[in-house]
Design a protein around this nucleic acid. Structure first.
Length: 589
DNA sequence: ATAGGGTTAG
């Protein structure tokens, strides 16, 4: 399958090269703010770091008369942009203490500041100041709060707040508020609700604009539903809203991920006809698409092309190329790209390091990965959750269990907070090396703290127990899933079925298959392969024959592991070959 | 004249 896709992407290079890209140098608007009596304060020019900001603030509060509120506002905003959230809070407190007047602009900045700190609770606690000072709430304040709720994944709270604002007519939502809610929903997988809001807007007074359409189109693209995305594209065109570079980038990304290179080309020429030229994101999307298909040379050529046209690659462009080399196992080439990037004056970030560490781990060169891990802090960076998870997986893969545990301990003491993937990696690792007690002790700790209750984690534990000969314990956990409100998915059933098959309990396995069908969980290719291996293992060849006919009818086929198993069985007992029905063209693969 | 909130790539 990959081979076909690769050949489809070949023609993209000359095609892209045929573009002529115009770049106009952007001129930063001159912005200057001054106090009431001609004291010019240009916040943007004066404030380059936290010290500058605090010094300027101290100067400002001594001026008579005080600089105007927009100057204070601009200063706070500049500090927020520099992510000095704690400092913003203390300066705001200082303003209150000095009785410096505040207004809605100052307040909404401080509210936003709390939201960006992921302290939406503190943001809400500022609302009484509005009431006390007689400053009315407005759509910006509420929009900021909604965004803050989404940022902390409080989706229900965000939607409830939005609905209340509308129902109680507290404020009229504008395009931006709709956009915030729709983006929050779409990024968390609620594409249907996002679409409903679009339809609601079309009925109401606030008509959808380009931002709104872009959110909806991107949501469909992320769902790999390009037909729906393109139908929304046509709707917006019909309403006289021309798609822009963002729209095109979303669509191109969606098409690249589906390997639909012909359509990518069509879209690229359409956008150039509209005088919309590919930017660094467009090129990074194309480069990523090529890399994911193993065509890193073509990706490099697209990169040379973009540079020729005056579009400079950024850290993300280099990242996708590095990851492309790592995917092909050429981590040394990735390392060279990393060095070239540094030579060009682009500082690596934690992504760059995680990509390389992953590359080395996949090649089982864990020592090099560990060395890079050490370099991270030397550069003033911090390993994030992905870095830690990657290195732990790498350590388990080479059997360095003690070191993996040390890394986990380091996370617990210094952060980042382990997530669900971390726990899955640890549990899988323990079970893989037969450390059942270790695994169960971690699992029980997680249960007590109610940290992780997701089906994927339970799948790991059930599978681990089955593989370590503890079928009864696994089955008991499986039976209790509904008590903790978890629904088994296809993988849960597969690991249970495999557990039964390993023990020769084929009737129990079949009853589990009936159960999953009854609970409207459709068996997948893995389910069928697990059964075939079970029949083979216990020499139930005639049952296997019946089963394989059903399998072929469903369009399923052997995977590599079953095929290998079968070859071994046939070598021992050639007559098994006669028991295999011919699997015709119904096969999916 | 001035200031605050929304969309796309690893």
């Amino acid at each position: 399958m990959t081979r076909i896709l690769v050949s489809k992407s070949n023609a993209i290079i000359p095609f892209i090269s045929s573009f002529y890209i115009l770049r106009s140098s952007s001129i930063r608007p001159y912005s200057s703010l001054k106090g009431k009596v001609g004291v010019r304060i240009n916040v943007e020019n004066e404030v380059k770091c936290l010290d500058d900001a605090v010094n300027l603030f101290n100067r400002m509060v001594r001026m008579k008369p005080l600089p105007s509120l927009p100057v204070f506002c601009k200063l706070l905003k500049t500090m927020i942009n520099m992510k000095h959230y704690y400092a913003v809070i203390s300066l705001f407190r200082e303003m209150r203490k000095l009785d410096i007047p505040i207004n809605e602009f100052i307040l909404s900045n401080v509210i936003n500041n709390y939201c960006l700190m992921h302290r939406v609770d503190c943001a809400f606690s500022l609302l009484p100041i509005h009431l006390k000072s007689g400053i009315p709430f407005n759509v910006v304040t509420f929009n900021t709060l909604i965004r803050g709720l989404f940022a902390e994944n409080k989706v229900t709270d965000a939607v409830v707040l939005f609905k209340n604002l509308v129902r109680e007519k507290i404020c009229e939502p504008n395009e931006i508020m709709y956009g915030t809610v729709m983006n929050g929903l779409s990024k968390r997988g609620h594409t249907e609700k996002t679409l409903s809001l679009l339809r609601l807007m079309e009925q109401g007074n606030t008509k959808p604009n380009i931002y709104i359409y872009n959110v909806v189109i991107d949501a469909f693209c992320k769902d790999r539903n390009l037909d729906a995305a393109i139908s929304i594209l046509n709707e917006m065109k019909q309403k006289g809203i021309p798609p822009d570079i963002v729209t095109h980038n979303s669509l191109i990304d969606g098409l690249c991920k589906l390997g639909q290179w012909e359509k990518v080309k069509t879209l690229l020429s359409e956008m150039v006809n509209l005088n919309i030229y590919p930017n660094v994101r467009t090129f990074s999307i194309l480069i990523d698409g090529l890399c994911k298909e193993g065509k890193v040379e073509d990706a490099e050529e697209v990169m040379r092309h973009m540079i020729e046209k005056g579009v400079e690659p950024n850290i993300i462009t280099y990242s996708v190329i590095m990851d492309g080399y790592c995917l092909r196992g050429q981590v040394d080439r990735a390392r060279r790209v990393f060095d070239i990037m540094i030579d060009k004056g682009i500082e690596p970030n934690i992504f760059s390091y995680s990509i390389l560490i992953n590359g080395y781990c996949k090649k089982k060169e864990v020592a090099k990965a560990m060395q890079l891990l050490g370099e991270i802090s030397q550069r003033g960076l911090k390993p994030d959750i992905v870095t830690y998870n990657t290195i732990q997986q790498g350590l388990f893969d080479v059997g360095r269990i003690g070191d993996a545990k040390k890394i986990y301990a380091e996370m617990l003491s210094r952060g980042p907070v382990p997530n669900s993937s971390t726990h899955c990696i640890l549990l899988k690792g323990y079970f893989r090396y037969g450390l059942v007690e270790e695994a169960m002790s971690l699992f029980n700790k997680l249960k007590i703290n109610r940290e992780d209750t997701n089906i994927e984690l339970y799948n790991v534990v059930i599978n681990g127990l089955c593989k370590n000969g503890k079928l009864d314990k696994a089955h008991a956990i499986f039976e209790k899933l509904s008590l903790i409100g978890l629904l088994p998915d296809v993988r849960t059933y597969n690991v249970m079925i495999n557990g039964f098959c390993l023990q020769g309990l084929l009737d129990e396995a079949k009853s589990m298959l009936r159960k999953m069908k009854k609970n409207s969980c459709l068996p997948d290719n893995v389910t069928y392969n697990v059964f075939v291996q079970g029949f083979l293992r216990w020499s139930k060849f005639s049952e296997m024959r019946t089963f394989m006919v059903e399998m072929a009818d469903g369009g399923f086929s052997f995977d590599a592991s079953t095929a290998g198993f079968l070859v071994n069985v046939v070598r021992e007992n050639p007559s098994v070959l006669d028991m295999i029905p011919e699997l015709h063209s119904k096969n999916k693969y």
